[in-house]
């Protein structure tokens, strides 16, 4: 129970900072929308291709936005010795990891909802089978947030963080991209029936579980001497 309370302290702190600075909503979200628009510009002449590849494009946009969100989550701790403050707070490091990952996940989920609406609008897609899409998106989001937070702290405080993080994180989250895209394709009836999405959702859930556990373990040692 203590863990949950400590977790929420960290999450609330990050969300409060976001509510005041509006970096995710004001910068990361417009970035994601621009990525969607760029895909549309690139593929528009080919009528009919956009709705078919929409799930992949959507998740690429989410992934790029997630990179920025994770980068932002650790940029918060850089200034004014905030990281030392966090380290000396006496909070459990596992709770810190879960808290930061939860904050990232919440922001990402909001981004996904808005970008999803964008996809429906721009790419002429009919949303359906929400009972498949929502769990798939949730599992993918938790996986992205957990892996992102783990690699975020791995690259945190380094001078080359901005360029290093994508290189470290993108290969790791490639399975999330694959699973989420296939689940969405099945769910939207683009490739197979909605029921075929479940094995992918299962895989996304296990990925999220593995990276949450790894991050929970590794966060302490990574933070302590950084």
């Amino acid at each position: 129970m203590n863990l949950l309370r400590e977790l929420w302290v960290v999450t609330a702190k990050d969300l409060r900072i976001e509510a005041r600075s509006r970096v995710t909503i004001g910068q990361v979200l417009p970035f994601g929308v621009i990525v969607l628009l760029l895909f549309a510009f690139a593929l528009d002449p080919d009528r009919g291709i956009l709705p078919r590849v929409a799930p992949g494009l959507f998740w690429v946009a989410v992934l790029l936005a997630a990179l920025l969100a994770v980068s932002r989550a650790f940029a918060l701790e850089e200034a004014n010795g905030a990281r030392d403050g966090l380290r000396l707070s006496g909070l459990d490091t596992g709770a810190m990891f879960l808290g930061k990952a939860l904050a990232v996940a919440i922001q990402l989920f909001v981004l996904e909802v808005i970008l999803g609406a964008g996809v429906v609008l721009f790419y002429d897609l009919t949303p359906r089978a929400a009972e498949v899409l929502v769990p798939a998106a949730l599992a993918a989001t938790v996986g992205l947030a957990a892996a992102g937070t783990l690699y975020g702290v791995l690259a945190a405080g380094l001078r080359v963080r901005e360029t290093l993080l994508p290189l470290l994180l993108l290969p790791v989250v490639a399975p999330v991209m694959l699973g989420a895209t296939r689940a969405f394709e099945a769910g939207l009836g683009l490739n197979g029936a909605p029921g075929e999405a479940w094995p992918w959702v299962e895989m996304l859930g296990l990925f999220a579980l593995i990276y949450t556990t790894l991050g929970f373990l590794a966060f302490g040692p990574l933070l302590e001497e950084a």
Binding site: L158, V160, L164, L168, P171, P221, A226
Partner: peptide, 25 residues
């Protein structure tokens, strides 16, 4: 690409202990 990332992590300018530990993880 995973280990390419690892090799870039090894080249970062940081204190040696920090780098070694992060690289190992």
């Amino acid at each position: 690409f995973l280990y390419l990332g690892y090799l870039s992590l090894r080249r970062i300018p940081a204190s040696v202990e920090t780098r070694a530990k992060r690289c190992a993880i």
